[in-house]
């Protein structure tokens, strides 16, 4: 029955499209289409889209759940928690994107990916990623999720100029020195500034300019490592 209604829904939407009635994004028709899509993925008996729904959503879009584009979509939806969309988030998010149907969303994916190369968008997605990665009720992000996010964001081929060549060193440093503690939001946000303003050889790094101590230690660690490497 569910499958049938799904089918009906999509069909109806497709019809809606071809008839050219939903040309203005955000119109009533758009909202209805998005709401239909929401119902399609919604957890039965719950008021949100859950893990399974997201999984299905990804499949339908033809992307992996770990694809960075999903993070961008979540950012546009303003999702509060990973693997979960509330109705409001999902519907207004899609409408904002002007992609109330799977087809339109699918066709928007390359654009969304490439938007990451823009500094402003990247920063917004980057800071969104921190709150997004927090477990419920936690103030800070655990080290392993933070590392996962960093790898996703900073090593992404779509990050363009925002990519950071030192992610491996940074992660290795954290794993060796940080005792598996959580990452503070300040540290998370400052890292992006650090990446943007400090050269990879740290020649313009200033110890006195209020970087979080973790970054101070990282620079020190890297300098030592490089000095040792240079000697050997």
């Amino acid at each position: 029955c569910l499958a049938e209604s799904h089918f009906d829904c999509e069909k109806a939407i497709d019809d809606f499209f071809t008839s050219g009635m939903a040309d203005q994004p955000g119109s009533r028709g758009g909202r209805r289409a998005a709401e239909a899509l929401y119902r399609r993925y919604k957890e039965p008996g719950e008021d949100h889209i859950g893990v399974d729904g997201v999984q299905k959503f990804c499949e339908d879009l033809g992307v992996e759940p770990s694809d960075i584009v999903m993070l961008v979509i979540s950012y546009h939806m303003g999702a509060a928690v990973m693997c979960e969309y509330s109705q409001g988030e999902f519907v207004t998010g899609l409408m904002k994107l002007g992609a109330e149907t799977l087809g339109r969303l699918r066709s928007k994916l390359p654009e969304l990916r490439s938007s990451l190369a823009k500094a402003d968008t990247f920063r917004a997605v980057y800071s969104f990623a921190y709150d997004f990665s927090r477990e419920k009720g936690q103030k800070c992000v655990q080290l392993d999720s933070a590392v996962g996010m960093w790898r996703l964001l900073l090593e992404s081929p779509h990050a363009g100029p925002n990519a950071w060549p030192l992610v491996d060193d940074w992660v290795a440093f954290l794993e060796a020195r940080h005792n598996n503690r959580a990452i503070a939001k300040d540290t998370w946000l400052q890292l992006l500034d650090f990446i943007r303003s400090v050269k990879p050889d740290f020649s313009n790094f200033d110890e006195n300019s209020a970087w979080p101590y973790l970054l101070d230690e990282f620079v020190e660690h890297m300098r030592e490592k490089r000095a040792a490497g240079a000697c050997a």
């Binding site: 103030k139 503070a184 939001k185 300040d186 540290t187 946000l189 400052q190 979080p212 101590y213 101070d216």
Partner: peptide
């Protein structure tokens, strides 16, 4: 001192 400042930021006594 820096660590303390960061801790205070985390606890929302201060903000950057």
């Amino acid at each position: 001192i820096k660590k303390r400042i960061e801790s205070l930021i985390e606890r929302e006594f201060l903000a950057r």
